[in-house]
């Protein structure tokens, strides 16, 4: 897989992945739209620029580890993996179907390249801490990235992991929080207190940065900066759930459902127009 360094190339790839998502989720008939669409730019940046990885050498010891803690948004990872050469893109249409490797929530045993099966929220960061401890013990150079959701900060176990990373001064661990302000029952602030996320991480002795999760320049440069910091780093990435499809953006009602055929057609038309706009850019 060729590393994409130009912003326009990354934007086009993200646009393609959004199209993939609409097609695969419509075909699956169940699953989540809001979270995956909102994370497309971050996953595009990871798989096509940031990650040290090789889609043909899955057990390469020196690869960076990417843990996706909220397993329900896995379609975005599947689509990014397919486009990055982990498997044929036609397989995306098997999402959630009987016999598929693309389980409704990601399965490490079924799909090589998934570092950790996740689904039950609040477990990914703790496992990432364990991987980071192992990396330290073996004096390895790779980085452990964990994508967490804002909603899963309701879980006490997430905060146990936050403490653990600070105790062990894990400077090889970067947690990217998908701050999209929605969870399944509504807006995060209405469901469960989640104010002062930055200050709460700082109180736990993490370094915290905030970025626009749709700005490739910010995503890539902030990760580069984070890697040089000698303590665990949290990047709060502000994202728009449903990003790229106007009628899904910011709508928590799209957290856990998929489009009907005519809605998918509208979404694809919008994405196609966006593609034309990107093409016209320098």
């Amino acid at each position: 897989m060729k590393k994409l360094t130009k912003i326009k190339e990354l934007q086009l790839m993200a646009n393609t992945i959004r199209e993939d998502l609409m097609i695969m989720l419509t075909n699956a008939g169940s699953g989540h739209c809001g979270g995956p669409l909102g994370l497309v730019d971050i996953f595009t940046a990871f798989y096509f620029n940031i990650l040290k990885h090789d889609s043909k050498k899955l057990n390469w010891d020196k690869r960076d580890r990417l843990i996706l803690s909220p397993g329900h948004v896995c379609p975005v990872r599947y689509a990014a993996m397919a486009r990055a050469g982990y498997f044929r893109k036609e397989e995306l249409l098997t999402l959630r179907k009987m016999g598929t490797r693309l389980q409704g929530h990601p399965s490490r045993q079924d799909l090589p390249g998934i570092e950790l099966a996740t689904a039950s929220l609040g477990q990914g960061l703790g496992a990432a801490v364990g991987m980071a401890l192992a990396g330290k013990l073996d004096r390895k150079k790779h980085t452990i990235y964990c994508v967490t959701s804002d909603g899963e900060h309701d879980e006490g176990s997430t905060w146990e992991a936050v403490n653990a990373a600070a105790k062990y001064k894990l400077n090889n661990l970067i947690n990217i929080i998908d701050r999209n302000n929605i969870q399944i029952s509504g807006h995060t602030q209405d469901v469960w207190p989640l104010k002062n996320l930055k200050e709460r991480y700082e109180a736990h002795n993490w370094k915290v940065f905030e970025i626009n999760g749709h700005d490739f320049k910010q995503i890539i440069s902030m990760v580069e900066k984070a890697k040089k910091i000698k303590q665990p780093v949290c990047i709060i990435a502000y994202t728009i759930p449903g990003k790229g499809v106007s009628f899904m953006e910011h709508q928590f009602s799209w957290h856990g459902k998929t489009p009907k055929a005519e809605e998918a057609a509208r979404a694809l038309t919008e994405l196609n127009k966006e593609r034309e706009r990107i093409m016209k850019r320098k």
Binding site: G124, G126, A134, S157, A161, N163
Partner: peptide, 15 residues
């Protein structure tokens, strides 16, 4: 923090 201990153990084992 037993929940996190088991999660950490998982990460260590997978490595």
């Amino acid at each position: 923090a037993e929940q996190n201990m088991v999660s950490m153990a998982t990460g260590l084992a997978l490595e």
